[in-house]
């Protein structure tokens, strides 16, 4: 062999500089023997790689002979146990969810969930009518905020004599809420009925009146009123009414 094997390897493994590589290629064009050496080198490398893969395959096949491809009974048992545990857990969680979400609720629970105290901070009046009625109104609101419901309802009652300049419906709405909070539902409904239909308080009145019916266990009246709210487009209490209706319908 005339060619230095190191140079041949360098060329074939692509580790020559560009200039060296170009010179080598040029030499190959004129020297057939060199060209054949290069081909022999690539051929030899292919033969080695091929034999190497065969050796590896034999080695892997030997490993494969000892493999147990059947399922390990222990693993299978563990898998069954895990599956059973998972099913039990699902049933348990499902039962708890059913118990809490689907059980019939008591009237008090429904009321507590759906009664929201009106925000009276914007109800205070500053420069309306006679000073005395204004004073009574603001004091009543103050007492309502402090949870002194009986005092507040007495003061609101004073303003229902027709001589106050505070809007009539507003006074009756607050009076009805006071009755509602003091659990005097008959009076609350009577007070709600005084609210004029064109008043801004009509929507709220309908909702709170429905809550009164629920508390009085008058299921049918509550359902009728809630249906009425539900079918009014854009009713501010529409969503609550829908949810409440579902619960009331399940009531015994």
């Amino acid at each position: 062999m005339k060619i230095d094997l190191e140079i041949l390897e360098k060329f074939c493994e692509d580790s020559m500089s560009k200039a060296e590589s170009e010179a080598f290629e040029k030499a190959m064009q004129t020297d057939a023997e060199l060209s054949n050496e290069v081909k022999s080198y690539f051929l030899s490398r292919s033969a080695i790689a091929n034999a190497s893969n065969e050796r590896l395959k034999k080695h892997l096949d030997d490993i494969g002979q000892d493999l147990d491809l059947a399922y390990d009974p222990k693993t299978r048992f563990l898998q069954y146990m895990l599956a059973a545990a998972g099913i039990c857990l699902l049933i348990g969680v499902g039962w708890i969810m059913m118990y809490y979400f689907l059980r019939p609720r008591t009237i008090d629970e429904i009321f507590l969930s759906y009664y929201q105290r009106p925000d009276v901070s914007e109800f205070s009046e500053r420069s309306l009518g006679s000073d005395s009625s204004l004073l009574i109104w603001n004091t009543a609101l103050d007492n309502f905020s402090k949870q002194e419901i009986h005092k507040a309802s007495g003061e609101f009652e004073q303003l229902t004599n027709g001589q106050s300049d505070i809007p009539f419906s507003k006074v009756y709405f607050m009076l009805a809420i006071c009755y509602l909070e003091s659990k005097d539902y008959e009076k609350a409904i009577a007070a709600f009925d005084h609210i004029r239909s064109e008043s801004n308080f009509t929507y709220a009145m309908q909702y709170y009146k429905a809550l009164c019916f629920i508390k009085m266990d008058k299921k049918q009246e509550a359902i009728d009123l809630l249906n009425n709210i539900k079918h009014q487009t854009g009713h501010p209490y529409g969503k609550q009414a829908k949810r409440l209706l579902r619960i009331v319908n399940k009531m015994p």
């Binding site: 062999m1 094997l5 022999s40 051929l43 030899s44 080695i48």
Partner: peptide, 17 residues
């Protein structure tokens, strides 16, 4: 190195290229 030379020689000798 010697083995690779041997293989190259075999490839060359067989005149298969």
């Amino acid at each position: 190195y010697a083995c690779l030379q041997q293989l190259l020689a075999i490839a060359g000798r067989t005149n298969l290229v």
